[in-house]
Design a protein around this nucleic acid. Structure first.
Lengths: 157, 157
DNA sequence: TGGTCCGGTCGATCTCGTCCACTACACGAG
DNA sequence: CTCGTGTAGTGGACGAGATCGACCGGACCA
């Protein structure tokens, strides 16, 4: 993970479809060596994949909400997590240090869908209470930040 | 935005580097027509871009936290938003309906960085209080959900 | 009937991806 | 010092992919 790798990662974060030839021009190497580096980054788990960024509103998912989950004492977290994963509308799921031990980011087409979703989450065994907050607007999302200088040995290796 | 477009979008969400030739084989068209559809989806804003998915821990950003912001009465939201945007560690920023009117998702290398970051956010004029929650683990993040059937006319057009 | 638009196909051409052999350099052992 | 060895990069060759223009066929409408 040297300066060249960081440049490659930054370029691919900004545009995941950048060709190896283009990356090569940017970093001053040839396409095969860039490909070699990218393959290694993928194998090390630094690059976990590539995604198209979709406008949620454009595909009919106009409502975004955050749902916090407060568990009860009997909560079986493996089970809760599994049941949450089975709900497709939950796009992100974080396990938190706090009273609300999960936070979910969900997207739905209509308010009615959100209501049904909240009921479904609340009905999961071990969930004592949920707290939902509607997002009025997304200022920005998943903005890549610069890679710290010492960002090397922490990978899966 | 017909069935074929939805398939293309789903394939590109799962792997943003899928070639036009491969997409063409999957949807039963030729590469040029698939390319044509993709270009239109990009122009309509349905596909907003392509990103490599990076493992935060592997690049030294091992700590993820959620910061809620409670504003005071004098808060100038344009100004707050601008100042937040200038902080690179804030990867996502949502404007919420609730007492905590912003929620930030931040990533930092070390706890000390998080502390400095919280102080910096708290020092923004109009910010009365912040509430920070550490994420112990990310169960999943940005998982694509199926596109609803009527996901057509809502786009930028 | 004929014109036009839209979306698709086909073929030509250029670029890109990918594989392989070779090279340059750093490192350690004998 | 010399010799392997491992790592990283180069360059060439070849097949696959991207891209462009010309053409085709159905839907729609006067």
């Amino acid at each position: 993970m040297d300066e060249i790798d960081r440049t490659i990662v930054n370029l691919l974060r900004a545009d995941g479809r950048t060709s190896y030839a283009e990356l090569a021009r940017r970093v001053g190497l040839t396409a095969p060596s860039v490909q070699d580096r990218v393959v290694k980054l993928e194998r090390n788990g630094v690059i976990a994949g590539y995604k198209a960024v979709i406008d949620s509103e454009a595909i009919g998912l106009g409502i975004t909400a955050l749902i916090g989950i407060i568990p009860d004492n009997s909560a079986d977290h493996l089970d809760i997590c599994e049941r949450l994963r089975a709900i497709p509308q939950i796009e992100s799921c974080y396990f938190l240090a706090g009273v609300e031990c999960y936070q979910l980011k969900v997207r739905v087409p209509k308010m009615g869908d959100l209501e049904r979703l909240i009921h479904r989450v609340g009905a999961i065994p071990g969930v004592a209470q949920t707290r939902t907050t509607i997002t009025l607007s997304t200022k920005w999302e998943d903005r890549p930040q610069p890679i710290p200088e010492d960002g090397d040995g922490h990978g899966v290796g």
